[in-house]
Design a protein around this nucleic acid. Structure first.
Length: 684
DNA sequence: GAAAATAGCTTTTTT
DNA sequence: AGCTATTTTC
């Protein structure tokens, strides 16, 4: 350990060695925050903490995975690694609920509803199809849960909060929504945090049990926590055998860019108030960028009101000036950026993957993609649709969910409709009516005798065959290996034929490929007890806190929390990286091209709609600027096409704030089009 | 009058 | 790229 400590700076060492009480590490961009967390875990173990009692909590699966990999490089003992809890907030909540669900009247086989399921539940409750209304109401219900409001608290909150129609409607259906989820034996993502919170608060014995289990907690990206997550941290971190709660929160208020989805960097401030003995340590040495880049970043962010003052610096010298380009329009901008990347790469013999183009909104990638394709330049588009959002994957998941939990009505509806089984909307409506009357699930309603007089013979026969099949697989899942069942299931639903029937051959082939990939992945996860992956170690403590999913049924629940299929990341680092500013957080690139630095885009402003939070927009720009290691190129367009006509655009106010050496109106020195031709000639 | 083609428009995204 | 509103076409 001491040799490891030698490679760290003083602030990092202080952060690691302070284990006597609550600790807040303000970790600037590129200051080695993951390093601090992983080394601190190693240090805690060295100091006698049992790895079983240490939990590191992240926000994304990706961050959790990275943390696990970094820990595996630091701690050789595989046994120790396995005992650690390294997971997302939601995965921790799921583990908690799986173990303690009996206290909540929830069966262990509860379903986890995705935002789509939530959407359809609200749609049913409102009996409305207005997308805008449903989305707003879903948002407010999520807000209530993050605030830990009961339905009656939500109603009184709505009354004091003025005349927001969506808010009132959301408060009014909140209780119905909760009851609906309960009837489905389902929880939504917010419940994974909120329910453990409520249970711990109301059950002191349980709280002591969990506090003893999680004696030291480390939270990554702490500025992204919402109220509910902070409450959970407080409930778990209080340690009955210690005088003070033991935890380390690592975060950066300057990189808080998720306020719009409930994160509150006020939680940094709250730590100070709630824990008077809080030790605050700032990490200001940056290991990523040159000082020209850091100065621009420091200047920019100094315009925000701040909780913690900090100034990034590095030992990497001044480096190149940050360059600023005023472009004629978006085409000029995109062409110019691609040209400059091509030229730079040609000159410096670098790899395409050293370059990143960052933008505020997804649609801005479209033009870039068009040009990159035209020039046959490899690129990777980050973000986009996740694997689990694809319709074909959701179809398969619907079957799995229904097999797992027959009360899961949204899964029932999806499964019974894809592929169509001769049960039309009229029959389904009758079935739903009956289920409502009898207060049972759609699945159970299929067995009712009354159904026979309600719907036609063919539909009844199909329904009964369908539910019998589901029951059969559920029964078999207890003994038979997952791989056999998955094949049987696919064969029964005849999914491949369905795809080719409903889509163009090319699209169908692609969808089927995704399906088989998913099924194979399930097989590999479900059958063997493979605890060691090709590329990483699975973590989890022996006490069941992080039990490894073994059969098909257990696997089903975990799927809901997963995002991108691991192993699909092979090509992730190939080619020019195109990314939104949000998705770029946590990453770094040799050369960064930040486009669309214009009023209305960055900071974003949607005309008459409530104008965005300028400070958050500034932080977003700050995140983009601090991604760059060697060079940073910012551009803006004087004109942009909107509603078919060109409008004049003002440069972003952030450009002045950065106090760059370059004039904002500086013209691009070259005609990018002719140079592109030249490059092509050179490369051929 | 209904289907098909086309034009226009996107905030940010995780669990 | 994907969704919607509008226009075109038969």
């Amino acid at each position: 350990m001491s040799s490891i400590i030698n490679t760290l700076n003083q602030a990092q060492i202080d952060s690691i060695k302070y284990i006597q009480g609550p600790c807040l590490v303000i970790a600037g961009a590129g200051s080695g925050k993951t390093r601090v967390i992983t080394h601190k875990i190693a240090y805690l173990i060295e100091q006698g903490f049992s790895p079983k009692n240490i939990a590191a909590i992240t926000f994304t699966n990706k961050a959790a995975k990275e943390m696990q990999e970094r820990l595996a490089g630091l701690i050789q003992d595989k046994k120790v690694l396995k005992q650690l809890t390294v997971c997302t907030f939601h995965a921790l909540g799921l583990k908690f609920l799986k173990l303690e669900c009996e206290h909540l009247g929830l069966k262990p086989n509860f379903s986890i509803f995705s935002s789509d399921d939530v959407y359809s539940v609200i749609q049913d409750i409102l009996a409305s199809t207005d997308k805008n209304i449903i989305k707003n109401i879903a948002h407010y219900i999520s807000y209530f849960k993050n605030q830990l409001y009961t339905p009656s608290q939500a109603i009184s909150y709505a009354q004091t909060a003025g005349d927001n129609e969506f808010l009132h409607q959301a408060a009014n259906i909140y209780e119905i929504y909760q009851n609906t989820l309960k009837a489905y034996q389902a929880v939504d993502f917010d419940d994974l945090i909120k329910l453990p919170c409520e249970l711990l608060k109301s059950n002191p014995n349980l709280q002591i049990k969990w506090q003893n289990m999680l004696r030291y907690i480390l939270v990554d990206e702490y500025q992204d926590t919402n109220l509910c997550q902070y409450e959970l941290l407080k409930l778990l971190a209080g340690n009955p055998s210690e005088k003070v709660p033991l935890f380390t929160a690592v975060g950066d208020d300057d990189q808080a860019i998720y306020a719009w989805r409930g994160a509150s960097s006020d939680n940094l401030d709250k730590l100070n108030a709630d824990f008077p003995s809080l030790k605050v340590i700032k990490l200001e040495q940056n290991y990523r960028s040159t000082n020209n880049i850091l100065n621009a970043a420091n200047q920019l962010i100094s315009n925000n009101t701040k909780l913690f003052d900090k100034k990034l610096w590095s030992e990497h010298g001044m480096g190149d000036d940050v360059s600023l380009y005023a472009m004629n329009d978006e085409e000029h901008e995109a062409e110019s950026i691609i040209f400059r990347i091509s030229a730079h790469r040609f000159e410096c013999k670098t790899d395409w993957s050293e370059y990143a183009v960052l933008y505020r909104s997804n649609y801005q990638a479209r033009l870039l993609e068009k040009i990159l394709r035209r020039e046959s330049i490899p690129y990777t588009l980050s973000g986009g649709q996740s694997f689990f959002e694809k319709a074909e994957i959701k179809d398969i998941c619907a079957y799995l969910r229904l097999i797992y939990n027959s009360n899961d009505d949204p899964a029932f509806i999806r499964a019974v409709n894809t592929p169509k089984k001769g049960v039309g909307s009229t029959s389904l409506a009758k079935l739903g009516e009956l289920a409502g009357k009898m207060k049972c699930s759609l699945f159970d309603a299929c067995f009712l005798n009354m159904l026979e007089t309600e719907i036609n013979k063919q539909a009844l026969y199909s329904l009964r065959e369908f539910v019998n099949f589901v029951n059969e697989i559920n029964e078999k899942a207890k003994h038979e290996p997952a791989s056999l069942l998955l094949d049987e299931m696919l064969k029964y639903i005849n999914y491949e034929a369905y795809l080719y029937e409903h889509y163009d051959e090319k699209i169908a082939a692609n969808k089927w490929e995704n399906t088989t990939e998913f099924i194979n992945w399930l097989k590999s996860k479900g059958s063997s007890e493979a605890s060691i992956d090709a590329d990483g170690v699975e973590f989890g403590s022996q006490d069941g806190l992080s039990a490894k999913p073994k059969n098909l049924l257990e696997l089903t629940q975990m799927i809901a929390l997963m995002t991108i299929l691991e192993g699909k990341n092979d090509n992730k680092n190939h080619g020019v990286q195109l990314s939104t500013l949000h998705a770029s957080k946590g990453l770094e690139f040799g050369h960064v091209y930040l486009l669309g630095a214009e009023e209305g885009i960055l900071p974003f402003n949607n005309g008459e709609d409530k104008s965005s939070d300028i400070e958050e927009e500034r932080r977003l720009m700050y995140v983009g600027v601090t991604r760059a290691k060697r060079s940073l190129h910012i551009s803006w367009c004087k004109q942009r096409r909107k509603n078919g006509e060109k409008i004049s655009i003002e440069p972003s106010r952030f450009l002045q704030e950065m106090n760059l050496n370059t004039n904002i109106d500086k013209k691009a020195k070259v005609n990018p089009l002719s140079y592109l031709e030249m490059m092509k000639a050179m490369l051929n």
